[in-house]
């Protein structure tokens, strides 16, 4: 069963860190991803650029509208994801709790739609 762990964090918090702390924070994410990979549970993962680099596209009345910025402005934004393959929701939740984002943001656990 695949679940997407969506890591929502406040990018300002990260930007305000001293380089040393920022490196530690990145290392924590790397260790989390590595632990998933070692257990053979990681399908894929990526860190996302901040929403300042985001662009949204919508077609209305046959016209393509391209807008600068994210779909929704929120304090905490989607900063990355881990797509994992585990037994059930409990297993997914226990991995979500280990994700560093759970400590300084929130992690949303979404089951992947089985086709």
């Amino acid at each position: 069963m695949q679940y997407m762990l969506l890591a929502y964090t406040d990018p300002k918090g990260f930007a305000a860190m001293k380089p040393d702390d920022a490196q530690k924070a990145m290392a924590a994410y790397a260790a989390f991803g590595e632990a998933l990979r070692k257990d053979g549970l990681l399908v894929s993962s990526n860190r996302l650029r901040p929403t300042a680099d985001s662009t949204t596209v919508r077609i209305a009345d046959g016209k393509t509208r391209v807008l600068n910025g994210p779909y929704a402005e929120t304090k905490e934004e989607l900063g990355g994801y881990f797509l994992i393959d585990v037994r059930d929701l409990d297993a997914a939740l226990s991995w979500a709790a280990r994700c560093p984002a759970a400590s300084h943001g929130v992690v949303e656990v979404r089951p992947v739609w089985a086709m």
Partner: peptide, 10 residues
């Protein structure tokens, strides 16, 4: 069903 909430005593 869809989120696979397990059936077990924790």
């Amino acid at each position: 069903r869809e989120a696979h909430i397990p059936f077990r005593v924790p």
